[in-house]
C-alpha cells in the first residue's frame, strides 16, 4: 500500500519558563492512502501536538521540532519554510479542529471562509468559489445553502458549524484530513451525523484521515488502524481488531477496561487506571507508564522499551513482550 505520510522519530518540545516540556518524544507512524488512522490517549499525551506539528501549526517559539522527519508525499515537511507551508495547508492537508465555536472567524461569512482556500489555492474567481462553497455546504448536509453561505458563524448551530468546518477542510480535496476531536463538543445524535458524513466523504474522495479522539467507540466505528500514545510516545499500534481484541500494552488494556459499554451488563465494575500521566517537564527515564502499571518490573523504571513487532500489523512497547518476561505476561 502506498504511504501518504510517514513520521520518523519526531520530537517536539516547548520552552516554558519552568523548563523544556518534551511533549512528543520520538514518535514513528505512517498513514496509507485512503486509510483512517486513530490516535488515542489521555489529555497531555501529545496527540494534538503531533497532529498540529504535521501542519506546522505549533507556535515556534515556544515550540521547537527538535528532531525527526515528517514525510508527506515523500517530501519532508519539517524542512519547509512558512511560505512553502502555505501551499500545503488547506490544499494538501486539511484540518478539522475540536471546537467549532472558536475555530471559525466570527467576522467573515461562512461562504467567504470556504471560498478563501479555493481562491488562494485553485485560482478560482470569486463567483466560481462562491458557487463551489454552496456545493460544499450541500455536500456536508446544510439545508438552504444559498442562504447559509451569506451567514456568519454565530447564526449556525454547533453541529452546523462543525459541518461548515468540514466543508472548509475538504474544499481543495486534500489528500490527508486531520480531525482533532471533531465530535467531542457535539451531542451524540449530531456526532452520529458528522461521523456518517466523514465516512461517506472518505469513501467518495479517497482521502486519508487521521482522527484524534479519546472516545474508543468512535475509533471502533471509524478507523482501520489505531495508534495509542502515552507520555509523548507511541506505546502500541495495530489494526482496530488487534487493539480491541488483543491489546498487549497494559495502558491499552487499562483504557479499554475503564469505559462502560452500552451493550453489556453493568455487573462488572469499571477498572480505572490509577494515578496521572508523568510530568513531561521531567520525563521518566524508563517506560512512562511504570508508575501506574500493575505489571511494572524493575527494568521498566530504568530502560524505555522499544516498539516490538507482535504480528505483521501490531507493535507494542512493553517489557512484558521480552522473552525473559514471558511467564509474567501470561498472568
Amino acid at each position: 500500500m502506498e504511504r501518504i505520510l510517514e513520521v520518523k522519530d519526531l520530537q517536539v518540545s516547548f520552552h516554558t519558563y519552568a523548563g523544556e516540556v518534551k511533549a512528543v518524544r520520538g514518535v514513528n507512524f505512517h498513514v496509507n492512502r485512503g486509510e483512517a488512522v486513530a490516535i488515542v490517549g489521555e489529555s497531555g499525551c501529545g496527540k494534538s501536538v503531533t497532529a498540529q506539528t504535521l501542519m506546522k501549526l505549533i507556535p515556534m517559539p515556544p515550540g521547537e521540532i527538535k528532531k525527526g522527519e515528517i514525510l508527506f508525499n515523500g517530501e519532508d515537511i519539517v524542512k519547509k519554510s512558512n511560505k512553502e507551508m502555505e501551499s500545503i495547508r488547506g490544499k494538501e492537508i486539511g484540518m478539522i479542529f475540536q471546537d467549532p465555536m472558536t475555530s471559525l472567524n466570527p467576522t467573515m461569512t461562512v461562504g467567504n471562509q470556504i471560498a478563501e482556500g479555493l481562491i488562494k489555492h485553485q485560482n478560482m474567481s470569486r463567483a466560481a468559489a462562491r458557487d463551489r462553497a454552496i456545493e460544499l455546504l450541500t455536500m456536508v448536509g446544510i439545508p438552504q445553502p444559498e442562504k447559509r453561505v451569506e451567514q456568519y458563524p454565530h447564526e449556525f448551530s454547533g453541529g452546523m458549524r462543525q459541518r461548515a468546518m468540514i466543508a472548509i477542510a475538504l474544499a481543495c480535496s486534500p489528500k490527508l484530513l486531520i480531525a482533532d476531536e471533531p465530535t467531542t463538543a457535539l451531542d451524540v445524535t449530531i456526532q452520529a451525523q458528522i461521523l456518517d458524513l466523514m465516512k461517506e466523504l472518505q469513501k467518495k474522495t479517497g482521502t486519508s484521515i487521521i482522527l484524534i479522539t479519546h472516545d474508543l467507540g468512535v475509533v471502533a466505528e471509524m478507523c482501520d488502524r489505531v495508534i495509542v500514545m502515552y507520555a509523548g510516545k507511541v506505546i502500541e499500534t495495530g489494526t482496530v481488531d488487534d487493539i480491541f481484541y488483543n491489546p498487549q500494552h497494559p495502558y491499552t488494556k487499562g483504557l479499554l477496561r475503564s469505559v462502560p459499554r452500552l451493550d453489556l451488563n453493568r455487573d462488572e465494575p469499571l477498572t480505572p487506571i490509577f494515578g496521572t500521566p508523568p510530568d513531561l517537564l521531567r520525563p521518566p527515564v524508563g517506560c512512562g507508564f511504570t508508575a501506574r502499571c500493575e505489571s511494572a518490573m524493575r527494568v521498566c523504571q530504568e530502560i524505555d522499551p522499544e516498539l516490538n513487532q507482535i504480528s505483521t500489523t501490531q507493535r507494542a512497547a512493553c517489557w512484558l513482550q521480552h522473552p525473559l518476561a514471558q511467564n509474567r505476561a501470561g498472568s
Binding site: G217, V240, D241, Y245, R261, L262, D263
Partner: peptide, 9 residues
C-alpha cells in the same frame, strides 16, 4: 447514536 467500543459490533 452511541458508538460501541467494539469494531465487530
Amino acid at each position: 447514536a452511541i458508538p460501541i467500543p467494539d469494531p465487530e459490533v
